[in-house]
Design a protein around this nucleic acid. Sequence first.
DNA 1: AGAGCGATGGCCT
DNA 2: GGCCATCGCTCTA
Length: 199
Amino acid sequence: MNHPFDDAFFLQPTVEVARALLGALLVRTLPEGRLVGRIVETEAYLHDDPACHGVRELPDGGTIHKQTARNTAMFGAPGHAYVYFTYGNHFMFNVVTGPVGLPEAVLIRALEPLEGLEIMARNRRLDDPRQFTNGPGKLAQAFIINKTLDGHDLTQPPLQLFQGEPVTEVVTTTRIGISRAMECPYRFYEKGNAWVSRK
DNA sequence: AGAGCGATGGCCT
DNA sequence: GGCCATCGCTCTA
């Protein structure tokens, strides 16, 4: 738990970063203790991708970048957090990738809980570890990730990302819950892992 | 100023 | 596996 990623890592093509973040460790420092989760499911969102928040689709089918109050962090520095709110209830945690000005990010969809399970149970208000972090809204609730962490530098507490053991068996699929660019194979998860949100 | 919507979750069959 | 409650927030008018 002592090797942060450098900028060069996040400047690789975002699809490769999404794949390579499997196995990485997310560490949340809270007053009541430390939470650690291992990333087991991710999705890539790209600068020419109609499903990406930083992108607007034009009538002729083309795309343009569109920076707004919500998605500003996505246009910012790589290795920082992009956190947004949706469905009136849920926060989504992304890792910003690519150079400043290019709206790309990796959505963290699931974690395998490693440390701080009692605190996660409290935050989630349930006892089944399988339900702590097996979805993007769930892991944000378990780790208390909200708008205050939007734009946060992930090399610094209270939310940090560290290298882990590489994942060898990776499954690639289409993304979940989107209505555009549904055919793109931009979702990655660790084969057989019990915390993957959906097969 | 407000209509529309969503990178979900949870519960039900 | 499918459906739908939910509701704050964002963007556009």
